[in-house]
Design a protein around this nucleic acid. Sequence first.
DNA 1: ACAAAAATGTAGCCTTGGCTATATCTACAT
DNA 2: ATGTAGATATAGCCAAGGCTACATTTTTGT
Lengths: 140, 140
Amino acid sequence: MGEGPGSHADRFLKARSERASALLEDYTELIADLTAEHGEARLVDIARAMGIAHPTAAKAVSRLKREGLATSRPYRGVFLTEAGEAMAEKARIRHQLVLDLLLAIGVPAEAADLDAEGIEHHVSDETLAAFEAFLKRSGG
Amino acid sequence: MGEGPGSHADRFLKARSERASALLEDYTELIADLTAEHGEARLVDIARAMGIAHPTAAKAVSRLKREGLATSRPYRGVFLTEAGEAMAEKARIRHQLVLDLLLAIGVPAEAADLDAEGIEHHVSDETLAAFEAFLKRSGG
DNA sequence: ACAAAAATGTAGCCTTGGCTATATCTACAT
DNA sequence: ATGTAGATATAGCCAAGGCTACATTTTTGT
């Protein structure tokens, strides 16, 4: 048969890799938020905000460090690297745009807020551009 | 502070649980497709369509069986139970609606096709209803 | 200054979802 | 009918992302 590009497999592979990076994006976004609010991101705050136990947050931070997205010293707060900041910023923009789009479509605020979190990681640059164009069009 | 409902933690918990069920939904949807096309879903076809190795597909089928979503006998095809069919049907509708919405917004067909796969699992009933209303409104 | 509380670190366990390698079974062809 | 190809099963490995329990370090309060 040879389904070519756009096959089942392609879509699933894309969705899988997005799921894999979704958590890292969430963490960088959150760390950026906490840093903006409190000057630093403490493990305990990360854990509470993510709704997980601190050892899980610690593991995640290890991974962030391993991937070059964050730095930290023992018993101190966590900070983003340049790469981490970039990822957080990209996630922030994406999140806001998805949220705006949902609201523009007529999704109730509460549902939009909840759903945007999951959706944002699966929106390609191309789709994001279309969202932006739609908002511009319908907004003004 | 006590952020109350709609906090970071709530959104992340929701996104996490959606990620967990996303794969099961993908499998039921795919098995339904294959069954419609070929009368049954063979492991090898499932694996190819998902872009994974067969042992991985076999494990997934075990899990589907354990969750009461599918049945199978050794060296034979996989079939959905009532519950599995229901999940597949719901996923199908959801997928189509998300795809239609993306197209209506102006997302190019190829991007819409790819992104819908990831997005569909994070769209709540409420948001889905809003999508439907928007399509009705803008469609005619 | 020192004890108690809070935060962080570490160890060890579980499940999920990937993989490869190997064994067994089914189906097909000659 | 039997050998080979194809499909399925099984074992065992890995990393991620959860958890609890316990150890250590910092911070705080008196």
